[in-house]
Amino acid sequence: MSEQKNISFDITIYDSIDELAQDDQSLMLEAVAVRKNAYAPYSKFRVGAAVKMANSEIVIGSNQENACYPSGLCAERVAIFHAGAKFPGISVKTIAITAASDNYEVSVPAAPCGNCRQAIFEYEFKQKQPIRLLLMAEKGSVIECRAIEDILPLGFNSTFLA
């Protein structure tokens, strides 16, 4: 007997960064600032990520490309891995992510790629608490997702390895 289920989630869309709470605005501005440090000579697509920890520390990351494409690393993974290395055992609360291009104006917030979703999901699963996402393009609207699990339904975790 088969069963059909619907998997859905809610997002909040803010018209601009100005509508965010002050802490979230500050976090997104950290992501915007570090986006400028991205090493993106091939794609010209710059991404910045700022991670807010439970201890209120902020950890940043930007994408780092490589001529051998698989050797590069996205901003989200740079930031989350840096957070895990610098503050082991401290929960991640929120990740602000912003994207821009040297070639055109990015007008729609870019969500994390599949590899980044899985990497963030690992931390969310490990800490047993949601990791909130704030997504923004160069300017304009900001999308808030309640948890990475929302945008990675049926995610792979350590229970499959037991």
Results as ranks from 00 to 15, higher is better:
P88Q: 05
D15Y: 09
D102C: 03
V59K: 08
G84S: 05
S158E: 14
E19Q: 15
D102G: 03
N55W: 08
P153K: 02
T159S: 08
E149N: 02
E138G: 15
R132C: 09
S141P: 04
Y104H: 12
E124D: 06
I95D: 09
G89A: 14
I151H: 02
S43V: 11
Q22M: 07
K128N: 10
I95V: 12
V108H: 04
I148F: 02
F9H: 15
I13Q: 13
Q118I: 05
F45T: 14
M136F: 04
S2F: 02
C68T: 11
I131E: 10
T12M: 03
S16I: 12
V47M: 07
Q22F: 06
A137V: 00
G140Y: 05
E122H: 14
N6K: 14
G140A: 08
C74N: 12
K36G: 00
L133F: 12
C113T: 06
I143H: 01
A40M: 01
E122T: 11
S8C: 04
Y39E: 15
F125C: 12
G114H: 09
S2Q: 09
I97V: 04
A31T: 06
R146L: 12
Y69V: 11
V106Q: 01
I7H: 04
L73V: 14
N157V: 00
Q129S: 13
P70S: 07
S158R: 15
V142P: 07
Y42N: 12
R46H: 03
C68R: 11
V78E: 10
A119P: 02
N6L: 13
I11D: 07
V92A: 08
K93L: 07
I148N: 03
V59T: 10
L152H: 06
K5N: 08
Q22A: 06
S56V: 05
A67Q: 09
E124S: 00
G72H: 10
K44M: 09
I13D: 09
K36V: 01
C74E: 12
F125Q: 10
A50S: 07
A49H: 01
I58T: 10
A79Y: 00
R132Q: 09
I58D: 02
